[in-house]
Design a protein around this nucleic acid. Structure first.
Lengths: 334, 334
DNA sequence: ACTTGTTATTGACACGTGTCAATAAACAGG
DNA sequence: CCTGTTTATTGACACGTGTCAATAACAAGT
């Protein structure tokens, strides 16, 4: 910038005014032109680092995501990106890799880089997030929001999918078709969404007056490679289920394969409902629950920006509605 | 940091030395301890922006990606991330959204933010990338690498999948099974990978002594929603193909659905081979070609880091080998 | 006690920008 | 020609760090 000033024959200050298009200070057209010309000729590119330092605004959001293996997480990031570009913000992407220690470290790195806001996408192998991590972020005063998880103390904004109603819809779909012996491939109890779905499963049974049979519930992770075996175990039961509610499309997909490989037919022998529409669901004919992950990202980012504008908002929980996607895996009918 | 110095009763310089653990300057243990204590008590967090400014090193890579809709691109980003964290680099992620103008703008933003290297993941609706964009980046002297595209003038590193051999393998798979009338759902001729696959298709036919029939080739985009109609058009041909090679798993998936919906059976009526293993391929039983996108990201990032270390390397093209994944969509066994 | 050498500590500058208050120039009114 | 007023331009400081050369403290050797 000093070079531009020298070349144009003006002071650096004037150059700065021109290049930032300040409206409160009048620059006569001829000098404007000469400065812009000089900048062009020198191929000047402003140094965003220095600018960030002096303005104390990086125009950058930090996003921590377990990884991008799952299209669910990738779609959340897509949503965030959309809003970011609308606000002319950059996106610093970090991976927690489902590791609490790594997550903390990544967040620290982002804070060092002075992100103006932080989006933390929940890990499926999640731990108690609240304590250390959130304290650290909040005490720093950096606006923060959690997606797909919801720390219990309500100190922070979060965006979650409406697992309760989503699960209810999925279960209702099966119950309405006359199934009374319904298995559940569970995502465990550590991750909040997994727990909610298992709870939803039990509640739906209770409301239908069906006793809870623990032998019909199996599984402890959203992403375990053992899902096929879990399904086989259900099929080998003396009284196997006539339908299965999987906490996850990934689990559901494995279940579908396992069911077919064991010579059963979907949906006549066993009906299957998944959760969290993944791309493969369509080709499996899998009835599932769409979580609108892109919306989750969009809403989270939007909320974060309003909090950046007004840091004193009281934290709220945003619930994104789900949508049942009916395909063939539970039979046709009305 | 000045606060820490004041509290510990030392100068800012000493604090800086301690906090950066400089080995060439000796700090006695007691002062070290007092400074670390003071930093801890004040919850000091170093300002990465100021640090970047003075060191002229941001430890940040810029990554431009069309979007994360496709798991192919998401996996590339995963690979890049892996290497980044190994080098303790951050990742600034920008979306080109398949738009040349937007891409240029994003790249400029990244350059403003002084990324130390730039990874440009090829857009499928790509234009002539070389001219404006690469000139700008290269003249800036910022190390750069292109993934999944290969500018013709060889001025820049790039990582591409071995489309030639991959396509050959896919076609050989069909030819060995006796198919002589093979259709092709094309990704068009604009994107380099799409063009290579179409060329590979023709070449494989030529080598097998089969004349090229233009009516068997249809399609112009990797991501068009019209793919099902293209497939139906092939099926309605007076002499329909007995096999189809799709440039893309996405196209292949649509084709599979269309084939079944039109009452044909896979693979006995029509065999299908896709390309670029997507997650849904597994559940469709789709024979396809794995491109190892994660490896592409890893190799690209690694190459970029070696170029950052030594900017005068002569540009090279890294070809990632593919792997044929045989499933049921072409019939069993040899 | 004086020099020499070693160890600890620090002052001062640089990085590239944004911004405010101050200066210089131009201009209008008498 | 002088004064007051608007318009253009600029010098100087701040942002928070890394680093070099210089100083201060101190031990060891004569």
């Amino acid at each position: 910038m000093a070079d531009v000033a020298r070349r144009a024959g003006f002071s650096r200050t004037t150059v700065s005014y021109v290049l930032n298009g300040r409206s409160d200070v009048t620059i006569p057209e001829p000098t404007r032109a000469r400065i812009l010309l000089a900048a062009e000729e020198l191929g000047y590119r402003r140094n965003g680092i220095a600018r960030s330092l002096v303005r104390n605004r990086t125009q950058t959001l930090g996003v921590v995501v377990p990884s991008l293996q799952s299209s669910f997480h990738a779609e959340i990031v897509n949503g965030i990106q959309e809003v970011c570009s609308r606000y002319e913000f950059r996106m610093l992407l970090a991976y927690s890799l489902d590791d609490p220690q790594g997550e903390l470290e990544q967040v620290r790195l982002l804070l060092e880089n002075r992100v103006e806001g932080l989006i933390n996408v929940g890990s499926w192998r999640t731990h108690d997030r609240s304590a250390e991590l959130l304290d650290e972020v909040l005490s720093e005063g950096v606006p923060c929001i959690v997606v797909d998880d919801c720390p219990p103390d309500g100190q922070v904004d979060c965006v979650i999918s409406d697992d309760r109603n989503g699960t209810a819809a999925a279960m209702r779909h099966l119950l309405q078709r006359g199934h009374r012996r319904i298995g559940h491939l569970s995502g465990g109890t550590r991750a909040v969404p997994a727990r909610l779905r298992e709870e939803g499963y039990r509640q739906a049974l209770a409301e239908a007056g069906i006793p809870y049979d623990p032998s019909l519930v199996i599984g402890w992770s959203f992403s375990s490679p053992d899902a096929a075996q879990w399904m086989e175990q259900l099929l080998r039961l003396p009284e196997p289920p006539t339908a299965v509610f999987a906490a996850n499309d990934r689990l559901a997909a494995e279940a579908v394969v396992a069911i077919r490989e064991n010579g059963f037919v979907i949906p006549s022998d066993v009906a299957v409902v998944g959760y969290g529409e993944q791309p493969e669901a369509r080709y499996l004919g899998l009835t599932t629950v769409n979580q609108a992950p892109r919306d989750m990202g969009v809403r989270a980012a939007e909320r974060l920006f309003t909090r950046i504008a007004d840091p004193d908002l009281v934290p709220e929980t945003i619930v994104i509605p789900t949508r049942l996607v009916v395909r063939q895996s539970c039979g046709n009918a009305e």
